[in-house]
Amino acid sequence: MPEATLRPGPEPWEYCLYVPNDPRAVTVSRRTLRLILTLHGLIRLVDVAELLVTELISNAVRHTKGPAALRLRWSEGVLRIGAWDADPAPPEPPVPLDRMAELEEDGRGLALVMAGADLWGWQPLSAEGNRGKVVWCELGAA
């Protein structure tokens, strides 16, 4: 019986897509994500990743006045999705999943991110908060 050889996962990579403050940026971000994941052989992550990107970029465009950016990074079997915006204010805390039915359409975004991602968080991009923030989440390949 031949020995099974371990195949290394895809090599690490990183992409950044800058988008204007425009509702169409969500569709552009989602389609860009699908293309990147497909080209890197990570099609199994597309459906969940598209939902996460939709929520993150929607928040960045809806709740800020400036441009935004989609950041994607693959390393060691983990996809990190980040949405940068120019507003240094922290995102609203996610609503607990058991209260989502009480909400209208607004206010569900980070709760969906929390439910769909393996890990999520946010960070300001400077000590004074004048370079905005990144709200991010991670998906494992398993």
Rank of each mutant, 00 (worst) to 15 (best):
G41H: 02
W120T: 06
N130F: 05
G121P: 03
A68S: 04
W136P: 03
A68C: 06
L112R: 11
R31G: 06
E138I: 13
A117L: 05
A4W: 13
E105R: 12
D118V: 11
K133I: 01
A69I: 00
P88L: 00
V46F: 09
G9L: 06
V28Q: 04
L125F: 00
I36W: 03
I36R: 04
A4P: 14
G109H: 11
L35F: 13
P20R: 08
E128Q: 00
D85N: 02
V134W: 01
G66A: 04
S75D: 14
M100Y: 11
A111P: 07
L110S: 11
E14D: 15
L110D: 10
L17E: 08
A89R: 05
E138D: 10
T5C: 11
P94S: 04
L103P: 12
Q123C: 05
A142Q: 14
A115G: 14
V113K: 10
E128A: 00
T54L: 12
L45F: 08
L42T: 02
W84H: 01
D87E: 05
V48G: 12
V113Q: 10
D118Q: 08
H40E: 03
R7M: 11
T38S: 09
V61D: 14
W13Y: 06
V19Y: 06
L72F: 09
R99A: 10
A83H: 07
G116A: 00
E55Q: 14
A68P: 03
V113H: 09
P10N: 04
P12H: 04
G129T: 00
S58T: 13
L139G: 05
V135W: 03
A111M: 09
C137G: 03
E102D: 13
P90F: 03
D85I: 00
M1W: 15
P96T: 13
V95F: 14
T27K: 10
E3T: 07
S75P: 09
L79I: 14
G82Y: 02
V95E: 11
P93W: 07
P94Y: 05
R108L: 10
G9S: 13
V135F: 04
G129A: 01
P96I: 09
G116I: 01
P96L: 10
P93H: 08
V95N: 15
T64Y: 02
D22T: 06
